[in-house]
Design a protein around this nucleic acid. Structure first.
Length: 545
RNA sequence: GCGCCCGUAGCUCAGUGGAUAGAGCAACCGCCUUCUAAGCGGUCGGUCGAACGUUCAAAUCGUUUCGGGCGCGCCA
């Protein structure tokens, strides 16, 4: 049990049931102690008493000893400021070694969640916006797993309908052109430069029954494979690739349509079939079946989300580009119309990405001059920086990807700053082994005993580092609850900063062997914490840099 | 016009209703005979876009307003 938990219980015991769930928060300023609670102010109204009096009353009843709390002070409006005892901190630190994965909850101890993201069309390159969705989605999946959720990562393949026939037509035209035929280039076609390599590759695979359709399917599969490889190259992997086509072949779309019609939420108009989206707050009704009989994207997406529910997930998270937010109301409306609890579907909108290089906003594409691809930026900055920079700003914020900064290898670049802290830890162990041959650390609370028996500046930086390490499990929970992997990134920056300060002030390897061992153990605990945090971000934790 | 997102230091951004709003960059000044200077310390820098409201307490919640982005297809 963490020291915070113990303090919480201690205060709740004193309050004797008059308040539950007392919040114990880390303080920002050292003068306010290590942790504080606002419970006295919250109780003031209810008890019709002065918060300062309540605070003092609580203070009088909480035991002060070296086991848990070494000091309590009451401040202005009614804060109860607490200094945690060295003993309690040192004792908590052992938990870093005792847990399977420090900071992570028991795997699959919480709800089943289906997390869908990227879901780009298999008709071409992934652009940097897809890259951001991929980075955020992948980090969020890792984060939710770390918090104990049973997460399935899924990519929805839009392999049906308009863009696929367009793809087939383009591929067929390129094929005929390669055979010397003069073809008429349709302005609706996809860019030739983009597809030609795939068409050549497709022909080389030796398609049996070569025609427009089979060529298109083969090209689509090749593009999909290329997307999969590209995503995997920056650690974005999926548990399932869900084909839209299956929804149509299994008549799931037809079933949805019929259900909506039976329940009176669909009607015919001008040859098309419409969903009464306005009844659910949308600005207009939406087409489900076009007048030529083809189903719309919306109909398939409704069927897809119903399929997710039918697979027994308690919670659905879907990540979309911000330019798709107009679709949210109709999708959720249709789910509600069909009797599903649409509050179980959470759509996260990821804002757009622009690029900066040489202090200027740039258009990086060599091909079209407009779209910036994942490939271009990734090859430029590498997987770790790519993931970090895209996932660090909150998804609600538009972001500027600074390529120069992402490539920099010093403290300006947070990726290197954090990784360097990890490498430094490893370096200390290498140094110790070089001097003494081997390390034996008995990982019990006695190991840390000497850690805080130091003075002044050494005490301050050591204690700060311990407190920060011990914050990690709670940071994981908070980040998961708010679905913000960026919180983990920010935490790691702070953690690395606390370590670099510690490193500057405190020498780990010294003549004092007891202190040396204590500090080695602290460094080990830190190393584990950084590595676990980086694991959530899907970034490597280098042993040396 | 309606809807969603965003306005915090010169720049990029943190900040689950709490205390004196924080980092990094940029600018200036310091710190390597000792475990990685890919590091550390210091100085400078703010009417949290604005106004009203709720609250013991608002950058945070509510309403209004100004500014920016996106969306409002029988496209996906």
């Amino acid at each position: 049990m963490s020291y915070k938990q113990k303090i919480k219980l201690e205060i709740e015991k004193v309050l004797n049931g008059s308040a539950s769930d007392v919040a114990i928060e880390r303080t920002k300023v050292k003068e306010h102690g290590d942790v504080a609670t606002n419970i006295a102010m919250l109780l003031a109204k209810e008890l019709k008493k002065n918060p300062l009096d309540i605070a003092n009353e609580i203070k009088g009843k909480v035991p002060i000893d070296l086991k848990l709390i070494s000091k309590i002070e009451i401040a202005k409006p009614g804060f109860i400021n607490i200094v945690v005892s060295d003993h309690a901190l040192v004792e908590s630190l052992v938990e870093v070694f005792q847990q399977d994965v420090f900071g992570f909850a028991l795997p699959k101890s919480k709800e089943r969640i289906l997390l869908e993201y990227v879901s780009a069309n298999p008709t071409g390159d992934l652009h940097i916006g897809h890259g951001r969705q991929a980075a955020i989605g992948s980090c969020l999946g890792n984060l939710l797993r770390a918090a104990g959720y049973d997460v399935q990562n899924e990519f929805y393949i839009n392999d049906y309908g308009e863009q696929i026939s367009k793809l087939s037509q383009t591929a067929w035209a390129i094929y005929k052109n390669l055979n010397g035929e003069n073809i008429e280039w349709n302005e609706n076609f996809y860019p030739k430069e983009l597809l030609e390599p795939f068409v050549k590759q497709a022909i080389n695979t030796g398609i049996k029954d070569l025609n427009e359709n089979s060529l298109g399917q083969t090209v689509k599969d090749l593009i999909l494979k290329a997307q999969q490889n590209l995503l995997a190259s920056f650690n974005v992997t999926f548990d399932k690739w869900f084909s839209e086509t299956t929804l149509h072949t299994k008549n799931e779309t037809k079933k949805v349509l019929k259900d909506l019609q039976d329940k009176g939420f669909a009607y015919d108009h001008e040859g098309a079939i419409w969903f009464k989206a306005k009844d659910f707050g949308d600005v207009r009704d939406r087409v489900l079946i076009r007048s030529d009989g083809r189903p719309t994207y919306l109909l398939a997406d409704i069927a897809y989300h119903i399929d997710k529910f039918s697979r027994g997930y308690e919670k659905l998270i879907t990540i979309w580009g911000a330019d798709h937010h107009g679709q949210e109301v109709s999708l959720k409306g249709a789910l509600k119309a069909l009797g599903y609890d649409n509050s179980k579907l959470e759509i996260i909108f990821v804002q757009l990405v622009s690029l900066k290089q040489g202090g200027q906003e740039v258009k990086m594409s060599k091909r079209t001059g407009a779209v910036v691809t994942v490939e271009e930026v990734l090859s430029e900055v590498g997987s770790d920086a790519f993931r970090y920079f895209l996932a660090e700003p909150h998804s609600n914020n538009r972001m500027v990807f600074d390529i120069d900064l992402a490539k920099k290898q010093d403290k300006d670049n947070p990726v290197y700053y954090i990784q360097y802290a990890h490498a430094r830890c490893c370096s200390i162990f290498r140094q110790f082994i070089q001097e003494y041959g081997s390390i034996s650390l008995e990982k019990n609370e006695n190991l840390f005993l000497d850690l805080l028996k130091v003075k002044d500046e050494e005490y301050i930086v050591t204690k700060s580092l311990i407190l920060k390490i011990l914050d990690f499990p709670e940071e994981v929970i908070l980040a998961a609850n708010s679905k913000s992997p960026s919180k983990i990134a920010n935490y790691l920056k702070d953690l690395a900063s606390d370590f670099h300060q510690f490193y500057t002030v405190c020498r780990v390897i010294s003549k004092d062997m007891a202190l040396t061992k204590s500090r080695l153990a602290l460094v080990e605990a830190l190393k584990i914490t950084i590595a676990n945090g980086l694991k959530i971000l899907g970034i490597t934790a280098p042993e040396a840099m």
